[in-house]
């Protein structure tokens, strides 16, 4: 069983969580002011990293809180868990 450390509930099974994609993607402050290309970049383009990726996860079958995770896409190891709004932690895969 693959355990994920919920910052609120502690270690729980992966089956209690959902991943909701890359974190730290800021919505353009003035959507009317950006070009179609810039908007498309915000909506569709993701880093698709081989290595460390920063993601949003939610403990949807537990406390239902959102948090961020730094994960190595090569090993699938979770290297850090941090709160929404927090800074990307420096991690080494």
């Amino acid at each position: 069983m693959f355990l994920i450390e919920c910052p609120w509930c502690g270690p729980r099974s992966q089956t209690e969580f959902h991943c909701h994609g890359e974190a730290h993607i800021a919505r353009p402050k003035y959507p009317d002011a950006v070009s179609d290309a810039e908007w498309a970049d915000y909506v569709f383009n993701r880093s698709n990293t081989k290595g460390v990726i920063y993601e949003r996860w939610v403990h949807n079958h537990g406390c239902r809180r959102w948090f961020n995770v730094a994960r190595d896409t090569v090993s699938d190891r979770i290297l850090a868990v941090y709160r929404v709004g927090g800074k990307r932690p420096e991690v080494t895969p």
Partner: peptide, 10 residues
């Protein structure tokens, strides 16, 4: 106490 799942039920 804990919120979790049993047989896929919350």
């Amino acid at each position: 106490c804990a919120q979790t799942i049993i047989a896929k039920a919350d």
